[in-house]
Design a protein around this nucleic acid. Sequence first.
DNA 1: GCCAACGTTGGC
DNA 2: GCCAACGTTGGC
Length: 135
Amino acid sequence: MNYWLMKSEPDVFSYDDLVAKGKAEWDGVRNHTAQINMKAMRKGDLAIFYHSNIGVEAVGIMEIVEEAAPDSTDETGKWMAVHVHAREKLAKPVTLKTMKADSALAGMVMLRQSRLSVSPVSKVEFDHIVALSKA
DNA sequence: GCCAACGTTGGC
DNA sequence: GCCAACGTTGGC
């Protein structure tokens, strides 16, 4: 099983929106590298839901419930999307500032490539972020 | 609102 | 195929 981090602007689609919906298509990803990551996702993988622009923090955990299929918002047929389901809201959000300051997370792809909206996270990094949310 | 990073487009 | 110009994302 693999772990991921996915960004969304909360004024467009927040973790609470996902909780309310239950299951949702993670559409609108129009970046090649992010697409490669989404296509590598398998059912049962877990992803961190991260709020960009507003909040700038990890807020919840979600599960990949459907693997990459054509993005329903894409008319060209080129882009894919996965379906996700809310799993667990973090007790306390983990801010970007906290992640940047933590040497255990120094290798995180999202810290190195801030504009990448879908990035892989190692199990160690994932567990560490969950632990920070409970600290 | 500004700026850095980076992806895309278009001229050559 | 290179590179300048431009647009977008995301942090601050």
